[in-house]
Design a protein around this nucleic acid. Structure first.
Lengths: 209, 209
DNA sequence: GCCAATAATGTTAGTGACTAACATTCCACG
DNA sequence: CGTGGAATGTTAGTCACTAACATTATTGGC
């Protein structure tokens, strides 16, 4: 949820402008590369001034890095049995949250992440985006007695794994779904726990091993 | 190893200039905040022009984010027994690499990371820095038969945990050592494996739980 | 001690991301 | 139709960063 949503900017016209900006940006980034594309280019392509671009997106990065990926995670994590080790709770919570995600928009997400993977600055921007999610997970865990440091490390480990997984997934040609890529990553993080009580390994994922 | 070390820049004078730039930057960042400090300010404080600053550091971030922290890690990881699950091998390799680190310069590192923690842009810059280390670990693991995806996820998970740990450590007032903070983080990531064969939990760390 | 060669620094001029202040156009609703 | 607020534009500026070229220190050989 990087982006404004400030009061105003909600009319049909504004939604259309925003959409044009996103599409122009992705197309130009794919065609000429991220750094070779200026904000002016994007704005011009969308039929709008650069100033208007910045009214919709706070930075050049933001138009790529908006994540539709910050959802009910905390809720899911909080619902895991407190008897599991923190890392397992986070991983299982993330897996469950994923199940409540429409499979549909994989393709645009893949475009975005593929662009992000191509530019170091954007790659690290992805990590920045997970900060909110990390905080939400930490809050969920500490509410049930996990010490803050432990909670944060467990969250950071899982999110680091997921981010790496997404970057690999988006750059790969395999017809794997985003969901399977993330699940595969979480399986690796919790591999040693697959024999622990109450934890069944998720469905195997084919290609990405 | 963010920074130049290009041919030249190795004389006594250049080392002195570099040192002055680092000290000026840290002091100004601590005094007025990262974003309120301009590169011109830093250069002026060091008695040098802005252009000279950029001859030593490629970006404003770099003067903070140089890591003395990218060392023999791959070597250590490669030396772990291949019978362990990948995550455990990475964690144990990192722990061992840490042991070969002088404890001495904790204080400056702490200053740097504390500054990094205060600015989102710098925080994500830290992640960017770990990319080289991640690649080195992946290379070490795949050389011994671990699939690339698995290797990368394990590396990313551990490095994510370590980074989070460092950010917490640097902002805390506890007199803990950097080494103990990192070990504590790795213990959390591999908690479920502490009963696995050949893996003894590292020394407990007091404060940071 | 003087004279190259080379390292270190400076100057100028530019690009591009981003901000602030203010002016303008568009559009819905009375 | 006309008015108020939303959407957009203009201008002018700051700051990170780059390139090309000019200048000053430093150092090693004589």
């Amino acid at each position: 949820m990087l982006v404004t949503n400030i009061i105003g900017m909600v009319t049909a016209k504004s939604r259309a402008t925003r959409q044009r900006l996103v599409e122009s940006a992705l197309a130009l980034f794919e065609a000429h590369g991220y750094s070779a594309t200026t904000v002016d280019d994007i704005a011009a392509q969308a039929g709008v001034s650069a100033m208007t671009y910045f009214r919709y997106f706070p930075t050049k990065e933001a138009v790529v890095l908006e994540d539709h990926f910050d959802p009910i995670i905390a809720e899911s994590v909080a619902n895991q049995p407190a008897t599991l080790p923190p890392l397992a709770r986070v991983a299982r919570g993330l897996r469950e949250a994923l199940m409540h995600l429409e499979e549909s928009d994989d393709s645009e997400v893949r475009r975005r992440i593929a662009i992000a993977a191509s530019e170091p600055a954007l790659r690290s921007g992805m990590h920045q985006n997970t900060r909110e999610t990390e905080d939400a997970i930490v809050a969920a865990l500490t509410r049930h007695g996990t010490p803050e440091f432990t909670a944060r490390i467990a969250a950071a480990a899982c999110l680091g794994a997921i981010t790496a997984s997404l970057l690999t997934w988006a750059s790969s040609t395999a017809a794997q779904s985003l969901r399977d890529a993330v699940i595969a990553a979480l399986d690796i993080v919790t591999a040693a726990e697959s024999s622990a009580p109450g934890s069944e390994p998720a469905a195997t994922t084919g290609g990405m091993q």
